[in-house]
């Protein structure tokens, strides 16, 4: 185990998330059971509310900790880079430590890959629970409680798994293990870039120009589409209209990742042939912030869909459009700010 400030902070966060996640699961299951057997009418709701106060407070705390754990995890990986001297240049090298090992270190690469995948999923799931919880809280008889609890249990389970995996990653010995393959230069810069990440037929000769068009086109298009949808949702919710927005948000997410690797990283690092996004953590963090803003926009569209589709009920009909509108407005601002920030970064680079 490599012990430094970030390792201690990460271990504390993981322990806290694990414990709170287990508590959320335990109280969540008992609340679910009580909800299934509740007496009808306001009495049932009162009983459920009494059980729910602690549960939703803990779930709110878990949500905040899940969000915090994402950047802390990358800061931890970055803090490990100097431990291997010139073998490892950036986080990419740290993620490959343990490859080819026969000891317990062989679990490190799959653990780190799993953690990199679960963290955004966990934040989306926790946010989806929170949005649905806010909708349900405004109703008289809490008709969405079943769905709220289902999302809560799913995010609680994922939080516990994520915390356990992170603790295991921290504890497994790694300093004595060295890279069996090269660092990011070999992974990101080898061969023809277009062939590696994008089909040549799709981008053609003017790769960078097309990527600029794709990034600003998809994000600008989403800003316009969101503005239109917000205007249309003034009086009633257009649940069908959310589906194309969700597709647009997924497209924006994909374009955002490719643009970060192919354009933003080389420009901000001042290394035209180096496409490692991990290098941006210490040497160009604003590139990560703008990508995170765009991702936040996609998440907000997803949460609006969760509210619009899973929050539909005769009791929530009156104020559901307003809730969806707020989320779409957050998405609009996130995409717009991401575009603006990327523009300023690239103009200055």
């Amino acid at each position: 185990m490599i012990l430094n400030t970030y390792a201690v902070l990460d271990a504390f966060l993981s322990l806290l998330r694990g414990m709170i996640g287990l508590l959320v699961l335990w109280i969540g299951v008992s609340t679910w059971w009580a909800w299934l057997r509740r007496p009808p009418g306001p009495e049932g709701r009162k009983e459920l509310e009494d059980r729910g106060y602690l549960l939703f407070l803990l779930a709110g705390l878990l949500l905040a900790l899940n969000v915090l754990s994402w950047p802390v995890f990358y800061l931890l990986l970055q803090s490990y880079v100097p431990e291997w001297g010139d073998s490892v240049m950036c986080i990419y090298g740290v993620t490959k430590i343990g490859l080819g090992s026969l000891g317990p270190s062989r679990f490190l690469p799959p653990l780190v890959t799993a953690l990199q995948t679960t963290k955004p999923v966990l934040i989306f799931l926790s946010g989806a629970w929170f949005v649905l919880y806010l909708v349900n809280r405004r109703t008289h008889t809490a008709p969405l409680t079943g769905r709220v609890l289902l999302l809560l249990l799913a995010s609680g389970l994922l939080a516990v798994t994520d915390a356990a995996a992170e603790s295991a990653y921290l504890v497994i010995p790694k300093k004595e293990v060295f890279l069996s393959s090269g660092c990011c230069t070999e992974a990101f810069d080898w061969g023809k870039r277009e062939v590696q990440f994008l089909p040549q037929a799709l981008v053609g000769e003017n790769k960078e120009g097309r990527l600029y068009a794709a990034y600003y086109g998809s994000h600008g298009g989403m800003v316009l589409a969101l503005a239109g949808c917000i205007w249309l949702c003034r009086r009633r919710l257009l649940a069908v209209g959310l589906a194309p927005l969700l597709l647009g948000a997924i497209l924006c997410g994909a374009v955002n990742v490719v643009f970060l690797i192919e354009v933003v990283a080389p420009r901000l690092l001042h290394l035209p042939y180096h496409h490692c996004p991990y290098d941006l953590v210490p040497r160009g963090p604003e590139g990560i912030v703008s990508a995170a803003l765009s991702l936040g926009g996609s998440f907000a569209v997803g949460w609006a869909c969760v509210a619009g589709w899973l929050g539909r009920d005769p009791e929530s009909r009156a104020y559901l459009p307003a809730t969806v509108r707020v989320l779409l407005r957050v998405a609009l601002l996130s995409y717009f700010w991401a575009m603006l920030m990327t523009f300023v970064e690239l103009a200055l680079a």
Partner: peptide, 8 residues
């Protein structure tokens, strides 16, 4: 959004 890239 504008200040962060400039500061960076």
């Amino acid at each position: 959004v504008i200040g962060l890239p400039v500061a960076g």
